[in-house]
Amino acid sequence: MVGGVWASNNSKVKIYNSQGKLIEVYSSKKQPRQVELVSEILGDAGGKAEGKDNFLFKRPRHAKLKATYVLL
């Protein structure tokens, strides 16, 4: 979603586990709210970035990757 308007009617979010295995796919046609939520969260985080060193957030040292979200 860009400025309240869908960038594409076929927007998708693919979710991979920490081993890189695809575990879920949301599409704007079948699960529009899930796609919108992920898009809003990432858009808000990106909008708060003040430079390349502050993009999104700094991960705690002992944090472990649980999932990767890919927006298409």
Score class of each variant (00 low, 15 high):
residue 3 G to Q: 07
residue 3 G to T: 01
residue 4 G to S: 07
residue 4 G to T: 00
residue 5 V to P: 03
residue 5 V to L: 12
residue 6 W to S: 11
residue 6 W to T: 09
residue 6 W to Y: 06
residue 7 A to Y: 01
residue 9 N to A: 14
residue 9 N to S: 15
residue 10 N to H: 10
residue 10 N to I: 05
residue 10 N to D: 13
residue 11 S to D: 12
residue 11 S to F: 07
residue 11 S to E: 15
residue 11 S to M: 15
residue 13 V to N: 06
residue 13 V to A: 06
residue 14 K to C: 06
residue 14 K to S: 12
residue 15 I to L: 07
residue 16 Y to E: 00
residue 17 N to H: 06
residue 19 Q to P: 00
residue 19 Q to E: 13
residue 20 G to S: 08
residue 20 G to R: 08
residue 20 G to M: 08
residue 24 E to C: 09
residue 24 E to P: 01
residue 26 Y to R: 05
residue 26 Y to G: 04
residue 27 S to R: 03
residue 28 S to W: 01
residue 31 Q to F: 08
residue 31 Q to A: 13
residue 32 P to W: 02
residue 33 R to A: 15
residue 33 R to K: 15
residue 33 R to M: 14
residue 33 R to E: 15
residue 34 Q to I: 04
residue 36 E to P: 06
residue 37 L to T: 13
residue 37 L to Y: 07
residue 37 L to R: 12
residue 38 V to T: 09
residue 38 V to L: 05
residue 38 V to H: 04
residue 39 S to F: 03
residue 40 E to F: 05
residue 40 E to K: 14
residue 40 E to V: 12
residue 41 I to T: 13
residue 42 L to V: 14
residue 42 L to E: 11
residue 43 G to D: 07
residue 43 G to V: 01
residue 43 G to K: 04
residue 44 D to A: 10
residue 45 A to K: 13
residue 46 G to K: 11
residue 46 G to H: 06
residue 46 G to L: 14
residue 47 G to F: 02
residue 48 K to S: 10
residue 49 A to T: 09
residue 49 A to G: 13
residue 49 A to C: 08
residue 50 E to K: 15
residue 52 K to W: 03
residue 53 D to P: 00
residue 53 D to N: 14
residue 55 F to E: 10
residue 56 L to W: 01
residue 56 L to P: 03
residue 56 L to H: 08
residue 56 L to Q: 09
residue 57 F to N: 13
residue 57 F to V: 13
residue 59 R to L: 09
residue 61 R to V: 03
residue 63 A to K: 04
residue 63 A to C: 06
residue 64 K to F: 01
residue 64 K to T: 05
residue 65 L to G: 00
residue 66 K to F: 04
residue 68 T to H: 05
residue 68 T to P: 06
residue 68 T to D: 07
residue 69 Y to T: 03
residue 69 Y to R: 00
residue 69 Y to D: 00
residue 70 V to G: 04
residue 71 L to P: 03
residue 71 L to G: 09
